[in-house]
């Protein structure tokens, strides 16, 4: 196994671990708003790492030009914050409760008042 293949292996493992951590966060954290942090960041970064690995693998190990994966990473990095934003909005609208340790809980009502009926 060459040095480049080790780098690829490392990136793949790192990506998989980040994806797993995102899923663990989803199960482990106490309320909806904290759970949101796992998938939007850890999972997106994990996918970025996996895409980087597959870019290296196809272009340098297999020696064929393949940049399509780049599009997946680009798309995900653009859509992840939008999805998170929509989910928070939906959560606030449905009055999903935050864990009692949350600071400034009164701000949650603020967004509801501002919305036009």
């Amino acid at each position: 196994m060459t040095g480049l293949e080790w780098v690829i292996a490392l990136l793949v493992l790192l990506g998989a671990i980040f994806v797993l951590i995102g899923s663990v966060a989803l199960v482990k954290l106490p309320d909806f708003y904290t759970r949101l942090h796992g998938p939007t960041k850890a999972t997106t970064l994990g996918l970025g790492s996996l895409v980087l690995a597959s870019l290296l693998f196809f272009n340098f190990v297999l020696d064929e030009l393949s940049l399509q994966q780049l599009l997946i990473a680009l798309f995900l990095f653009i859509t992840a914050p939008v999805t998170a934003y929509m989910l928070v909005k939906a959560g606030l609208h449905r009055n999903v409760d935050a864990v009692s340790a949350t600071k400034n809980k009164h701000l949650m009502q603020l967004s509801e008042k501002q919305r036009p009926k």
Binding site: S23, L26, F32, T43, L47, L50, S54, Q68, I72
Partner: peptide, 30 residues
């Protein structure tokens, strides 16, 4: 709550993309 379930479903989508990327490297096909 329903937003919770939706979040889990969305994460499932992203994880399956990760799985497909790994499968691409495993089978050396894009």
């Amino acid at each position: 709550s329903i937003p919770d379930r939706l979040l889990a479903l969305d994460t499932m989508y992203i994880n399956s993309i990760a799985l497909l990327l790994c499968y691409g490297i495993y089978g050396a096909s894009n």
